[in-house]
């Protein structure tokens, strides 16, 4: 039974992670522009379990939705990096998503603290 519970919790954690990935990527771009691998490393450092390649379709969508803009930059390492930067629309999205997240998180915290 313990195994089953653990499996369910693992699946639930995976869904939580997937659902919050867009917010995590937008947050990571809030203060500075970054390239794909930087984002993967940053999200993995935060234990968000990002696989190596799956961030790129997500970034591609954010770009199409005009939430980020991109620029290829030669950083002197022998090859260029494609940098992602938040647009005004992206900033507005982060702000709105963050407000929704806080509201949800507070509601859940109230339930957790309820005796």
């Amino acid at each position: 039974m313990q195994d089953e519970v653990q499996k369910e919790v693992t699946a639930w954690r995976s869904q939580l992670r997937k659902g919050s990935l867009e917010l995590a990527v937008l947050l990571a771009l809030r203060k500075q522009r970054r390239y794909g691998m930087e984002l993967v490393d940053l999200l993995n450092k935060a234990n968000l379990g990002m696989s190596e390649g799956s961030i790129y379709p997500l970034l591609s969508r954010l770009r199409a939705e005009k939430k980020v803009e991109t620029e290829w930059v030669d950083t002197g390492v022998g090859h260029a990096h494609k940098y992602y930067e938040l647009t005004e629309r992206g900033r507005a999205t982060v702000k709105a998503m963050l407000a929704a997240w806080r509201e949800f998180s507070n509601a859940l915290a109230d339930l957790v603290d309820e005796r």
Partner: peptide
């Protein structure tokens, strides 16, 4: 071209970091 260039750049970075199995973690 754009997608492949970006993935190539990612793999080159991992290679420069000394990662042995460059494709580990990719779908």
């Amino acid at each position: 071209d754009e997608i492949i260039s970006e993935l190539r750049s990612h793999l080159l970075d991992r290679q420069a970091q000394g990662k042995e199995d460059l494709l580990a973690g990719f779908e």
